[in-house]
Simulated scan of single mutants.
Amino acid sequence: MQNLDTARQNYERNGACILRSVFDASWLKLVENAIDEALQNPGPHSERYGPAGAERFFGDLDMWTRSTLFEKFVRESPAARLAGEIMGSSTATFLYDQLLVKEPGSQERTPWHQDQPYWAVSGRQVSSIWLPVDEAPKDVALQFVGGSHKWGHAYNPSHFADGTPYVGTGLPELPDIEAERDKYDILAWDVSPGDCIIFQGMVVHGAPGNPRAGRRRVLSTRWLGDDARYSKPKGEVAIPTTLPDLPDGAPFEGPGFPTVWRASST
């Protein structure tokens, strides 16, 4: 396993880092089985993206609330510890999980975006762990605009299903990254099962379609550190899917937002 200090430095500088071989075969098998269950029993927030009849990009949220397999991963896998250590936090609190499956031949891009403007969350210690259970070469894996988490700007989210902008946020539109890729430091890695990418909530990222023969199944788990707070923004908000009974500025806590890892416990 690569040195965590080096990964943390890359995360701080670029907004994203890759960790190699940090999830063993037993965790990958559990996630594969959990994904199979989720595809057979989609939840209330599931969506299929793309033109009618050609929806080859599937997403779902909050699987851990209805699946013991996803819950086991959240509570017992290395994910919480890795998130906490990379964020430089003494705790890692779970926000939500997200499933992203691109079937072979999918042309649907994951649009360039920042995560945090979709969420009612403030703070710098906010991260995601992107864990594929299939080979994800860099031409189909998640890509990042290096250093964009330091731009100091939040940009308006858009709906993945149809590209329409969120309403009432007052945020500006994100620059057209794809049209001007040569202007940016685009980071991408070949990611194998067992590897994961950890990235900060404000880094700009997106992903190509999946024209290859193999599936691209990914579990993303979202984590909050010591400085993260509930902060309901103006206008539309996607996450949490049910707004919590928390005062503005409060830390996330309670059964829906378990603190899974504490540095003092290791």
Rank of each mutant, 00 (worst) to 15 (best):
D182H: 10
W130R: 02
E253F: 15
L171K: 03
T266G: 15
G201K: 00
A52L: 15
V140F: 02
G225H: 03
H113N: 14
P251Q: 09
L219F: 10
L69V: 01
P175N: 06
S90W: 01
K150G: 12
G146E: 04
Q107F: 12
E173Q: 15
R229F: 09
A25H: 14
G235P: 04
V145G: 00
D185G: 08
D190N: 15
T259A: 04
W119I: 08
L171Y: 06
M202W: 15
E47I: 14
Q2C: 07
V133P: 00
G201W: 00
R181W: 03
T68L: 10
L95P: 03
D176K: 11
Q107R: 15
Y166N: 06
N3E: 15
E32Y: 11
P233T: 05
V167C: 05
R66N: 13
S265V: 09
A79G: 07
F257Q: 06
L174V: 07
P157Q: 02
D195K: 08
W112T: 05
G163V: 06
E32T: 12
T164M: 14
S265F: 14
I198T: 12
D185Q: 13
E103A: 11
P172M: 01
L82V: 06
G84P: 00
N41H: 12
E71L: 10
T241W: 12
A83H: 03
F23N: 00
T266I: 14
R8L: 07
A52N: 05
Q114N: 12
V167F: 13
H45P: 06
G15S: 10
Y230S: 00
G43C: 13
A38N: 06
A161S: 08
S106D: 14
Q116E: 05
S77Y: 07
G53I: 04
M63L: 13
S67Y: 07
M87Q: 04
H159M: 07
S128P: 07
E236C: 06
V101M: 02
L219C: 08
P251H: 09
G53M: 07
P157N: 08
L30S: 03
N3F: 13
Q125L: 13
P137S: 09
R212W: 06
L19E: 00
V218L: 11
Q200S: 09
